[in-house]
Amino acid sequence: MLNADLPWLSAPLADALTRARSHALLVQGPAGVGQLELAVKLAQSWLCETAAPGQPACDHCASCKLFASGTHPDFQLLLPEALEAPARESLGLPFEEPDAKAGKAKPSKEIKVEAVRSLLAFAQATSARGRAKVVVIFPAEALNGVAANALLKTLEEPSGLLRFVLASHDSAGLLPTIRSRCQPLPLALPERGAALAWLAARGVEGAEGLLAATGGRPQQALEWFQAGLTDAAWQALPKRIARGETQSLADLAPPRAIDALQRLCHDLVRRSHGQPGQFFAAASLPSPKKAAPLLAWEAELRRAARHADHPLNASLWIEALVAQAQAAVTASIR
């Protein structure tokens, strides 16, 4: 069962099933805590044929078995192309690998209008099993402007038994007209003990440090660990950056390199104002005396983040980032 895999979702799921009053819910909260899993479990519970109203899915009825196999005729999961495989794999749902010969275009990170039009055809059909039809959209902020506008009328006036669950890491990035049509369902960070127990059960070493490094997001901490990032390597990053070691970021994809530097900059700014860091252990951080160089660096990192997905030359770009970081850290501690 999904809520056994992510135990901190049990209470939000029960709350959502009890107080949902709208045909459209917006699950919103920080990345890495289970928005997609909660949205999918809600969909399964609404489609379950034995669960009482307000109760979670039974996992055993014919509807639940269809759902688990990814063949439920009344369920649609709308994802960007770039997330199709990892998201469905994490949910245990089947997916088709793209044909390598079909084209060399990079999978889109947006949900495009063509996908929404296909969804609308599904929405207008009669429910196959007679209970409801449910659509999950994740991440909802990936809807581009045309796609979001194409969805509006159906989201406002759904036909028949149609229900929506939009899940978002950045609800501020949604059109206000989309947000206004949904009942908000906040999802907070899980309690630290539950998150650490979940990580330990999955063999994550240095779980406390990685959980702190990700801001309390256990799914992200697990992803980092599985990608080869250890707590020791993370804690060594500030000193390696201060020494100008380009290799400290060489193994990271450009977006993750920028993310790591932004977390380091954030902690150093906090230290410069006498506050503890959030993402690194105190012993790992230098003690800056001036915030101005760090604030200027922070602004440069925001600009660099706009191009993190498509640097012209990744190795030169990383070198420039490390040189910039070293200069800012050095200036702040003098």
Rank of each mutant, 00 (worst) to 15 (best):
S159L: 14
Q262E: 12
A24V: 01
A115F: 06
P158Q: 08
L17V: 13
N144G: 07
A283F: 08
R192H: 14
G193H: 11
A102V: 01
A24I: 01
K106N: 07
E37Q: 15
A188D: 08
A115W: 04
P158W: 06
A147C: 10
Q76S: 14
L66G: 13
W297N: 01
L36N: 06
P288V: 03
A194Q: 13
S248V: 00
R263W: 04
L321V: 05
S45A: 14
A331P: 02
Q220T: 09
A207V: 01
G203N: 03
A200R: 12
K41T: 15
K104Q: 11
L26A: 06
A308K: 11
P80I: 08
S180C: 11
L93T: 13
A296G: 10
E191H: 15
P53F: 06
A100P: 07
L83Y: 03
A87G: 11
H169E: 08
E141M: 15
A282I: 02
A87H: 12
A200G: 12
L229R: 04
P53K: 07
H72M: 13
E84S: 07
K41V: 14
A291Q: 11
A296P: 00
A43T: 15
S118N: 11
K65D: 09
L316N: 08
R179D: 07
L175A: 03
A4N: 12
L42I: 15
Q35G: 06
E223K: 09
L174T: 02
G103M: 03
A325F: 05
A305K: 14
S10R: 08
A52T: 10
E223P: 04
A188K: 08
L294H: 03
A16S: 10
G209T: 01
A327M: 00
A201P: 02
H72F: 14
P107E: 03
A57Q: 10
N144P: 10
H266V: 08
P86C: 12
P184L: 01
G29P: 06
I318G: 02
G215A: 09
W317L: 05
R179C: 06
A39Y: 05
L9G: 04
S284T: 04
A102M: 02
G228W: 12
A31C: 11
L155D: 02
E81A: 15
G209A: 07
